[in-house]
Design a protein around this nucleic acid. Structure first.
Lengths: 405, 405
DNA sequence: ACTTACTTTTTTCACTGAACGAATTAAGTA
DNA sequence: TACTTAATTCGTTCAGTGAAAAAAGTAAGT
């Protein structure tokens, strides 16, 4: 439990400035009196705070509201170009880098390839070089870079900023934020697991806007889970989320790359296709399926290939069991399904709903919404940027921690 | 997400008073200068705060520390008799009531029986009467009653203080805190699920003292789960915890009283004994087992009854799978097993550990501790009292909510 | 045993500054 | 002209602050 900061004049000043700033950020354009009402601050105090924020160029005044019977209110807006954020996604053999403004709007994107042989140091150097190129290309001064958010697969400890283990990258205990910070000592650097990043995007720009407690489940080359409680992402002991993909669905089932057997990931993701085919060689061989990527199996299923259609449906049923267990365990308002699988959801949607909706809370008349994400691939960039932005504008109630070091 | 309070002189005053008070509560006896150091408050401010807390009789001065080379420090203690708390546990056919001081120490206990026919109103009246009897019996003035904590089984919404549904009691949507508060309008009243109550006791007096993130799993006439994140209990959407006992362990397995099939609760609790026996009538009938309560099956197993021993071991294996899935999903520091089953843990401990320890995080060399609760039945009372005490001494950072109304 | 020098604890007191609220000014509507 | 709403000005309030003083010790030296 993080310790609360001790009360002092500075604390109340900081709290109030951030409260005001966040109201402007999320409800712009707003008038002074509207903010004062919501904050329960005196209008005089508010004017003083606004003055300060304006001289810091964090906000600006623009236009006027229509009169409600008296003097028109001047409207305030957040200056989203007050600074810039770099969002980095580390994929299997490339890094994707984007420049965003302080609202997480993407201004420019780049990518750079690397090979499995490259060390974390090499990749960090590439990140540095990409950032420099973006800033020269966009003709912006590096002093405006306020934060860097990095998304990676695998087990990530966001508190100390290390990638604990990523089997995809073959990395272990890489202190990524510290390494990046060496090149940008003035900038706050954050890492997180990529699905948590996506979840941040859902929270601010997607399905999460209307929900306090929800889960994000990713279906693709594996199964991922991100848990949102009270609009905050839950981080387990080591700082990463859990490994829901490796809960046991079928005792003594298909062997998993993690060393266990019968993991959900082996049944409710791309892996299932290959597992099942190796299990039923005869029906497989007559099916003319050539590979087991989501896209291929989906194409075959759409063309009426019986074996592929069944693969999809069975995968959907297993996913349904996974989701049902999540619902019964977490009692979320909503589950958002994301990832490559969403593109092909029409092929297994029915089975998922059939099983997942048959849950404990349904029987007590508490509904759990099941939706597919409506965001596109830019959500990764948005999420990475939000990782930094949310920290920068966080209300400063707690003692500073060493995160984002 | 609860809104943060706006900064003001009153806020900083309240924050600091509660910070000081909580340091004294948890580290007593302490000196002024020690507190000042921890709070980062000026010693002068601290003396002023201490003076106030003393006149409010929340703390008192007692004794002196040994000198460390200069003037001896006067030591401060929390006045645990500053007020009293009532802790109520509603069981199937009785209510248990205890009086505690402000540290949750039990001063006196009572119980009163009721029948299934009694309405929630009758039971509430009984609670009122029990409280009055305790206060006259203990010769204390009712004005010292500061809080009431109620524990009930079933789905509880602690935010609005209702028992949403308890199949054991046959109650639905009972606004229990409001009903109790009618008799004690000056007193703060709180409800929670009984396992969450137990968890509070573990947090303050048990295994939880050394752990930030842990799970409490109860094994007895059912399976319960309580989730602690960052030393705070996680409450799902409706305000109750999830229903982990009703996650599907065996698709299309034994039918459960909740309407689903193959629930964990049917395999990792007392229920399993009956289920399995009905499945295997022949081996059962030769086993001479007469009933399927935990105590009976355990007794038989201890006497060497093969069928009973196997029941226990199998139950343990299923529980192991349940715990493994919890570990993989939540990545806790520790799982604490509580409830009636703990008494007989030697009969299934081995199987539980065998399966639960074979988890994802173990393979990445992150250990999850598995322990049996060391608290006794008084922990229910302690937990109920802490429900109220923790709220009363909470640092007042957030806008007040309607809880504990 | 007494003095002196040094520590640590606690209190006193003038000062600071963030929020506050009443009064004032500004800008509108009917 | 009367009323409404918005924004600013300015003296007041009070929680926290830090330096200094007071209180209460310890540890030598004589």
């Amino acid at each position: 439990m993080r310790a609360l900061r001790t009360g002092s004049k500075e604390l109340i000043k900081e709290i109030n400035r951030f409260k005001v700033l966040n109201i402007i950020r999320h409800q712009q354009p707003v008038s002074r009196s509207e903010i004062a009402k919501q904050c329960d601050l005196g209008v005089s105090t508010l004017s003083y705070i606004i003055e300060e924020l304006k001289t810091q160029r964090l906000i600006y005044e623009v236009g006027e509201a229509t009169s409600t019977g008296g003097r028109k209110a001047k409207l305030l807006r957040f200056n989203k170009d007050h600074g810039y954020i770099i969002s980095v996604k580390i994929e299997e053999e490339q890094i994707l880098t984007a420049l965003t403004n302080m609202e997480g709007e993407i201004l420019c994107k780049r990518y750079a390839l690397f090979s499995k042989k490259d060390s974390p140091e090499n990749v960090t150097d590439m990140i540095e070089s990409e950032i420099h190129q973006i800033f020269t290309q966009e003709k912006k001064d590096l002093s405006f870079l306020l934060g860097i958010g990095i998304l990676s697969s695998g087990l990530v400890n966001r508190h100390d900023g290390t990638i604990i283990r990523s089997s995809m990258l073959g990395w272990e205990n890489v202190p990524i934020t510290r390494m990046v910070k060496e090149s940008f000592p003035e900038v706050q650097v954050f890492v997180d697991n990529n699905i948590n990043g996506y979840t941040l995007a859902e929270l601010e720009k997607g399905e999460g806007k209307s929900s306090q407690n929800f889960l994000v489940v990713s279906i693709g080359a594996g199964v991922g889970l991100s848990v949102v409680i009270d609009r905050k992402i839950y981080y387990g002991s080591v700082g990463g989320a859990g490994e829901f993909g490796h809960t046991t669905l079928v005792p003594n089932g298909y062997p998993c790359h993690c060393g266990q057997n019968g993991c959900l990931e082996m049944y409710a993701s791309e892996f299932y296709f290959k597992n099942k085919a190796e299990d039923q060689v005869s029906s497989y061989s007559s099916s003319k399926l050539t590979d087991f990527h989501f896209s291929e199996v989906a194409r075959a299923a759409e063309e009426g290939n019986e074996f592929a259609m069944n693969l999809m449906k069975e995968m959907g049923s297993y996913l349904g069991y996974g989701l049902r267990n999540l619902i019964n365990t977490f009692n979320p308002d909503k589950i958002i399904i994301v990832g490559e699988g969403v593109k092909y959801s029409h092929l297994f949607n029915h089975e998922v709903n059939l099983i997942a909706n048959d849950n404990f809370f349904e029987k007590v008349d508490i509904k759990t919404e099941l939706v597919f994400s409506g965001l596109n691939d830019d959500a990764w960039f948005t999420g990475g940027a939000l990782l930094a932005i949310n920290q920068i504008f966080q209300e400063p109630i707690y003692e500073p921690i060493k995160a984002g070091l």
